[in-house]
Simulated scan of single mutants.
Amino acid sequence: MPDADGATPPVSPEEEAKALMDRARLLIRAGQVLEVIPLCDTVYRRHTASRVPALQLQVARALGHRGAALSEEGKAVEALIHFDEVERRFWSPRKPALWEGVAWAMVYRTSLLMEQDRPQQALQCVGEVLRRFGSSEPPPGGLRNAVGVARLLLPNVYNQLEEHEEALRLSEALLEACDGDPEPLKVDMASGALLQRAHALQGLGHWEEALECFDTVDVRYCEDPDPRMRSVVSAALLGRALVLIKQELVPEALSALNAVLEHAGPHPYPRQRPMVDFAQFQREVFERQLEEERELAARQKAKRRT
Rank of each mutant, 00 (worst) to 15 (best):
L237P: 07
E248Q: 15
E223I: 02
I245V: 13
I245R: 05
P227A: 07
S231N: 08
Q247H: 03
L242R: 11
D224A: 07
D226V: 11
V232C: 02
Q247A: 09
Y221Q: 05
D218F: 15
L254I: 05
G239Q: 07
A241E: 05
S231Q: 08
A235V: 02
K246C: 12
I245M: 15
L249Y: 03
A235L: 10
S231V: 05
A236Q: 00
L238T: 01
V250F: 09
E248D: 14
V243Y: 05
R220L: 15
C222L: 10
D226P: 01
V233P: 01
A236T: 10
S231M: 06
A235I: 00
E252P: 00
V233R: 00
P227Q: 01
R230D: 04
R240A: 12
S234R: 02
L244Q: 07
G239K: 10
L238V: 08
C222W: 11
L249T: 04
P251N: 03
R240L: 11
D218Y: 15
S231H: 10
Y221F: 15
S231G: 02
V219D: 13
V232G: 01
E248K: 14
Q247K: 13
S255I: 10
Y221E: 09
D224Y: 04
A235H: 11
E252F: 07
L244K: 03
V219A: 13
L254W: 05
V232W: 02
A241W: 06
R240E: 13
D218H: 14
D218Q: 14
R230Q: 15
L254V: 09
P225D: 03
L244A: 02
R230P: 05
L249W: 06
L237N: 00
A236N: 05
R230T: 04
V250S: 01
I245D: 11
A235C: 12
R220V: 09
A253C: 10
P227W: 04
V243A: 03
V243D: 02
R220H: 13
L237Q: 10
V219K: 11
V243H: 01
L242W: 08
A241K: 04
V219N: 06
R228A: 11
C222M: 09
S234E: 10
D218K: 10
E252T: 06
P227H: 03
V233M: 08
S234Q: 09
V233F: 03
E223S: 14
L237D: 01
K246G: 14
V233W: 04
R220D: 04
A253W: 06
V243N: 06
K246D: 15
L242F: 08
A253N: 06
D218V: 15
I245A: 06
D226L: 11
D218N: 12
V219R: 14
Y221L: 10
P225E: 03
K246P: 03
E248A: 13
S255A: 15
P251E: 01
P227E: 03
V233N: 01
L249A: 11
D218I: 05
